[in-house]
Amino acid sequence: MAWSPPPTDVLLQLLGAPHQTELVSSALRLTTALLGKGARVQVWACGDATRLTWTGLGETKPRNYGDWDREYPSATRIVRELLTDHPDRLYWYVCAFCAEERGTADQIPQVRRRPMFKYAEHVAVAGKCLSLGVH
């Protein structure tokens, strides 16, 4: 039987790119707030937002020459920890086409790659759908 996305209260579609605006910070704050209210949330990342959960980012950011011994978690680690903290209420998907196109196909195991022609299935099982940013 074909896999189907679990129902959620909210679908957050991440269309905008990281490193440009506070879109990612806002999305993670919103996700945290929703989870804090007991909601179930799914995130669908498109375009350069697929890099947030790319294995190539590793566990930490490169060293800071100005503060050599301080550790800075990568975006991948931040998202992974958020996912592992909420295994039954938070789901993170990346558009498989975007990931292939942007060189981020190697995703952490907590993230599911989905073909873009299945996107409507995710919309159908979400109580509300919110798009953040522009592709």
Binding site: P18, H19, T21, E22, L52, K61, G66, R70, Y72, A75
Partner: peptide
Amino acid sequence: AYRGAVERQFADVLS
């Protein structure tokens, strides 16, 4: 300004 606090951290343009 404000181009991605979570993903940039110390690696912002001011650095």
